[in-house]
Design a protein around this nucleic acid. Sequence first.
RNA 1: GCGGGGGUUGCCAAGUCUGGCCAAAGGCGCUAGGUUGAGGGCCUAGUCCCAUAGGGGUUCGGGGGUUCAAAUCCCCUCCCCCGCACCA
Length: 978
Amino acid sequence: MSIDFVKIGEKWQKRWEKDKIFETNAEEIKNIENPDKFYITAAFPYLNGVLHAGHLRTFTIPETIARYQRMKLKRVLWTFGYHVSGTPILGLAELIRKRDKHTLWAYNTLHNIPMEELLKLDNPKNIVKYFSGRATEAFKKMGFSLDWRRNFTTDDGTFKKFIEWQFLKLKEKGYIKKGSHPVRYCPACDNPVEDHDLLEGEDTNLVEYVLLKFKIKMDINGIEEECIIPMATLRPETIFGVVNGWINPDRKYVLIKVYGEVEEVEDGKDKKDKKNKENKRDEENRLNYKGIWIVSEEASEKLKNQGRIIEKIKEIKGEELIGKTIINPINNREVPLYPAKFVDTEIGTGCVMSVPAHAPYDYVALRDYYRSIGRELNENDLISLINIEGYGKYPAKEIVEKINIKSQDEENKLEEATNKIYKDEFHKGILNENCGEYSGIPVKNVKDKLTRDLIKKGIAEILYEFSDPKVVCRCGCKCTVKTVKGQWFIAYSSEEWKKEAHKCVDKMKFIPESIRNEFHNKIDWMKDKACARRRGLGTKLPFDENWVIESLSDSTIYMAYYTIAKTINTNNIKEEQLLPELFDYVFYGKGDIVEISNRTGIPKEVIEEMRNEFLYFYPLDWRCSAKDLVSNHLTFMIFNHVALFPEEFWPKGIVVNGYVTIEGKKLSKSKGPVLPVEEVAQKYGPDVGRFYITTCAELSHDADVKFKEMDRVRDNLNKFYQFAVEVSDVSSEGIEPLEELSIIDRWLLHKLHKTIKIADESYSEFHLRKIGILFYELIKDLRWYKRRGGNNKKLLKLVAETWVKIIAPITPHLSEEIWEIFNKEGYISLESFPESNEQYINEELELGEEFIVSTMEDIRRIIEIAKIKPKRIHLYTAEYWKYEVLKIMNKNKDKNIKEIMPIIMKNPEFRKYGKEIPKLINELMKIGIKPVIDEVEILKNGKTFLEREFGCEIVIDGEDKNNKKRFSIPYKVAIYLE
RNA sequence: GCGGGGGUUGCCAAGUCUGGCCAAAGGCGCUAGGUUGAGGGCCUAGUCCCAUAGGGGUUCGGGGGUUCAAAUCCCCUCCCCCGCACCA
């Protein structure tokens, strides 16, 4: 007879729902400092598919903890919303509308959507509706104890009002900025390209080239004009060592007039001016003339894409530039332009500066060039700018000679040499006396500062380039880097904001603790984040309706919205009523409630309820998520909280779990496996799924779902059920007083109370795997108890009653079912967690059983090796003085052997065993320093048991046969088989 | 490159913070026995090598060190995974 986990799942879910036992309301606040509440959330799911095994793991963790805290009699707020902002849902709708074959296949088979239903999902609205329905279904089928009145999607009008309020506040605080921003762009599609729209080059990064504006005199229409020849480099510090420039003589270069746009500075105050600024005539005036530039033809396109307006004057061939003099803007040094074929005009500007002291390419190219004009390159031609340990003044020269590079054609060798030199110089190099005010600064620290300084002086600019030129859009066209103008940013780079965020991280709790540091690092790394996009679902920026708030930016403080969502939803409050003043009152207590009530048309009491819900449940106690959100969402959450809420409402803790794979395979929404949550519920039943997913791996580790192991979980839960059924008709009332219980009963009671204690701690530390281990231990203990002859029905019932509560947070349906079988009143979900009683905890009982086990193992071992079938087994406990030694060791646990030895030897009684003592101590160390137990008593008590086990007579401390007794030490009896 | 996490006995996976009960939990697989008379079953024992009395030997990516004692602490080194953003 076994239990149907699916059936009991449905049974109890129906009852819970009918009785609304998981709906939570704030209490009238008595003590804001320490209310009896517990507020936990998980990062809500993005709904472009069904919930999968990864969601199951991340969400079951807080679900279990919520149930545990409820049993600790806290008022628990635990609910879910759905994330639908951004472009993926739009993209999915598009694919379904186009009847994309792969998409239809994936959603039909992997996400389990009937084709008829699937074909209707050709617009975002239907997708949101469909998947939110499926998600809700999945949560319910897994028995999640959620307050559904607080559910919403990020596309709901009411939620959008909340986000508008958030962004207005951020702007007021000066954390919203406007600027330009480089993006990956497809010229054919005329659109920014997202990761999933790429055919090739997903791993490509943007690299910042520094353009150093060298001067050059050029003849234009008969007039000599001063032009700019921008040298592109990744190592701006080498500007101090330039001895010439390189031009590819065979390629096309252009002379262009370059204008930069004056950045519009948005300080949030001059909204009235804004309209004027957009006026065309004004735009002309905002152009900033930057002179005539000479760059490769390809580079001129890039400049155009990256915020410069250009006007072409004429084209020339590279060779026309050869031999001309260019002027280094940092020191006005005049150097010549030489030809070099290695110059790739597709990279940078097609103009390269030559630093032969530190760049192997330059060194070899210059040597080649000099040789072609009949002279030899020597050290006087080089300018050293970096001192580096292990190298002389001219590292490039050194390495070229060392690995014997003969000419520019030896590209592999040159590449190798360059990598080596760059790496060494970057990590170990220090700028030398040729670098003016920068001398003495390590290379690795100088780049940013120098670049900033040079830009400020007007002698440098930035040009973005892909780290790998092969970036191809889905349409087949090569992508470029384009600067988006007028982009809105959240100013996460702000130093004071970072300071607050660090402070918050310092105060928070983290599980695992090691991620705390990751948050600190991430905060330091934060740059301004583009927070709005041209398309996608979500909220429009309240102050610029051309932009939609980007999806990671509209989900940073929504936990605050959960607290009031119930009031908004149940009172059917309309979005128009949710004015910013209302949120100001609810979250800040600002403004006059009567006035706000009049303005919004929301009754005063309702507003007060919202205020109270927020005050009661905030701050958030725990935020749960998988580890992929650490570097984005979770960090943003911290930033936004510290910006928008006073310190007492900052989040208190973050829990991060690892990923999930299925039979070793990564999850994939489009390729599988997915393992929809509903499938787990239907195939295994909710409790089996919940137990497995919370206990199959350590929290922070990745978990690999193995179906076979899930079967085992089902078997073990079933075993527990059988055990409960067996004792269901006895009462746990009237168990004998402790002194009258048998050793093995006392042992079981000890184990039970110790387990409660450990389970309690484990739950509060999110150590759910431990609960699983304890559960398996219980099964093992019960087996041992029976084997040892234990059969106290009342006690067994007590164990069952206690354990059914201990695992209730993980297997609530099974627990309810057993609770009902036990004829208990009410729901176990609302019962209180068992409490451990110290009076039953006695470690010696456990040591005693371990002693029996190890004795049995020893006997069995001897039987096996000696191949004897004993007629009689003699057991000898150790001589008295050996226990005395162990006692001394127990008293001096903190001391090492060297220190203990003299303490023992101080006692003259032990001196006569002088030679034996060090050996004994060593052996005892091996066994471990355990308290002395009454071994004779324990053996006597277990005699019958041992005789049954071995099928022969056991003699304890009888006649010393074969002189065995002397080998006995504490915890290790001497054995003689007869 | 920067930042983070890892490498344990056939496999999965504890142990590492707080050195000694660590030849190293637990699970899977495998082997033997029992129970049962078939059907994902239960129980017991074994599963690095050697050993006819509980012993010995070699192990925890590799190398070195500290210590009476190291999977655990320190130094060096090799390998694997993840993140580096505007994308959820």
